[in-house]
Amino acid sequence: MDDTKPIVLVVAGHITPADVPRLDEELRAGLPETAAEVVCDVGGLVRPTLAAVEVLARLQLTARRRGCRLGLRGAGPELRLLLDLVGLEALARK
């Protein structure tokens, strides 16, 4: 596996609190030990809510524990505002 390419995880649709463990497990399962970066493609999120923010916070924690950076691709203004309100604005700037 090429560890210079970021791992891409798509987070799309309507996210609910029930999706948090599933998406975290999906990242854990697909994250090799040598990965340096994870990119969450959030362009397909429908009406981001705090559940989506919870997913992203959990994914960021999982990536950090594995020594990876986590960034977002396709974050719209609504998601950026929510991230800013909860103190995770740096996540959207990566």
Results as ranks from 00 to 15, higher is better:
M1K: 06
D2Q: 10
D3Y: 09
T4A: 12
T4Q: 12
T4F: 08
I7V: 15
I7N: 04
I7S: 04
V8W: 03
L9G: 03
V11G: 07
I15E: 02
T16W: 07
P17D: 02
P21T: 09
R22P: 08
R22S: 14
D24H: 10
D24T: 14
E25F: 02
E25K: 14
R28V: 13
G30L: 03
L31F: 00
L31E: 01
L31H: 00
P32C: 02
P32R: 11
V38Q: 11
V39R: 14
D41A: 15
V42F: 15
G43H: 13
G43Q: 13
G44N: 10
G44S: 12
V46P: 03
V46A: 13
R47T: 08
R47A: 15
A51Q: 01
E54D: 04
V55N: 01
R58E: 12
R58I: 05
L59F: 07
Q60A: 13
L61E: 14
T62N: 08
T62E: 12
A63T: 07
R64S: 14
R64T: 10
R66A: 15
C68L: 10
L70F: 12
G71N: 06
R73I: 05
P77R: 14
E78H: 09
L79H: 04
R80W: 02
R80D: 06
D84F: 10
L85R: 12
V86H: 04
G87S: 03
L91H: 06
A92M: 10
